[in-house]
Amino acid sequence: MRKYVYKRPEVFTDAITTYCGGCGHGIVNKLMAELIDEMGLQENGILVWPIGCSCLSDRYYDMDAYMALHGRAPAAATGIKRADPSKCVIVYQGDGDLVSEGMAEIMHAGIRGEKFTVIFINNAIYGMTGAQMAPTTLLGQTATTAPAPLGRIVDNSGYPVKMAEILAELPGVIYSERVTVNSPQRIIACKKALKKAIQLQLDGKGMSFVEVLSPCPTGWKMAPTKALDWIDDEMTKVYPLGVIKDASKEAE
């Protein structure tokens, strides 16, 4: 007899992802697939994908999906969720997509308190287009558009944007947490946060938002295991982990 400790989630197709080795997108996509299986969302869920390295993700899951244009995922999701509130709508966006191209869409979806879940992948860079500076790039971090020796400097490009804190200020956002996936323990914590955020949507509360600090070994020009360390050494200092807001009780 065979007893599985870990098995590829059912909702996954056989597709091999287009992500680079060690990319955090792969880990978060996998956690989503596990939760879709565990929470029974394959029939009733709709995934809304962005532009960026994850823009081919719809082919990894055997379920309904919508591919939104640059930054427009929360706008598209608004239409989907309002047309059929019984669907569990999960929006997935990277930092180039959510913070830069789609700042207006995410802010107004939060302002309106749209009742869907947003998973925000923050890797502090534009991955797909070739490691340009993003609004989330750290001060001093180098990118093709913020070259060494200075990297990103305030005089030119301002400060890194803390989306989990910004959205927590909005009454329509009932849950905001920042997690990461750079160790087994934190991957488990990330899954817990995603589960809570999805459950709040199923319970019909306001918008739930989870920011994931995610390794981009290619954009950061580091070996994957080094990228995991960089999250601890640099990223979490600018983007602290933890629950920033949980108003789910008050929203009863």
Partner: peptide
């Protein structure tokens, strides 16, 4: 790519599968 090789002493904790970004690992007891 050069995938890792599996040696002896596995306790089937599942950690390797949990951290794999490509969901390439299956762990079971038989």
């Amino acid at each position: 790519y050069y995938p890792p090789v599996v040696g002896d002493g596995c306790i089937a904790c599942g950690t390797c599968a949990r951290v794999c970004p490509d969901t390439a690992i299956t762990v079971y007891k038989e």
